[in-house]
Design a protein around this nucleic acid. Structure first.
Lengths: 127, 127
DNA sequence: CAGCATCCTTCAAGATACTG
DNA sequence: CAGTATCTTGAAGGATGCTG
């Protein structure tokens, strides 16, 4: 049930597949990594500006998905103006470092990737 | 250049953003994780069957992307029938464990996620 | 402030057929 | 075997306007 030996989630009918589908997403990665690095709960508009380039619609959808999958806790405060805070759940606190690690690795290895890309493009572009 | 303090890749104009965009992908995760767990090079159709559910088109595109970004090496053998092997580059060998870790975590925590999801759905579905 | 609703575009992915 | 080419669909994402 919880594992699909020998290779988790590679089979389409494996339950963990849907979990990977949730996590292997750009905005999910940014939101979880940011909530972790922040250490504090973040409000909707805080996330909106921290996750540069995300639209309100995409962020809403991302946060709903994370909430639905038990990775993020959405807390609404009865106040005017409205105040909604998002924080990692215990489950989210486990997953976030895995995604943050990808962001860190990406940042460190961007030059190598950019170089590989340029090399590939020139090799393909010309004979 | 390589880092965007204090939060890598969260700004849209940060170069590492494109690297995250490559890695935060379902098929990329599976291909890299499989190549790592295999330890050996894998042929196109081997990957096609191991990554259950991927279409030939999507796999081709995924592999091209990985090759272009220096994560996978594509080796063609002049033979009949044609033989093409894919293996991790040094860069790919660094990145793969990070993605494999997500797959493992997903497999281990699927029950919790499924439960959270059911809980959320019943709470939303009814008053 | 934190969203939901709507419209519209685009572009990624599936199905299918063909080739070096 | 390992792809490429084409067609079609449908879901993701942007823009805009409105609301509790």
């Amino acid at each position: 049930m919880d594992t699909c030996p020998p290779l988790p989630a590679f089979r389409a009918d494996c339950p963990s597949r849907v979990v990977v589908d949730v996590l292997a997403n750009k905005w999910v990665l940014y939101v979880l990594a940011l909530l972790q690095k922040s250490g504090n709960p973040l409000r909707f508009n805080e996330l909106r500006h921290l996750v540069d380039g995300v639209t309100q619609k995409s962020l809403t959808k991302t946060l709903r998905t994370l909430e639905r999958n038990g990775l993020v806790d959405r807390r609404v405060y009865a106040a005017v103006p409205p105040r909604v805070e998002y924080r990692l759940t215990d489950l989210g606190r486990e997953a976030a470092p895995l995604l943050a690690a990808i962001d860190s690795w990406a940042a460190q290895n961007t030059p190598a990737i950019v170089e590989a890309r340029a090399s590939f493009d020139t090799a393909s572009g010309r004979a």
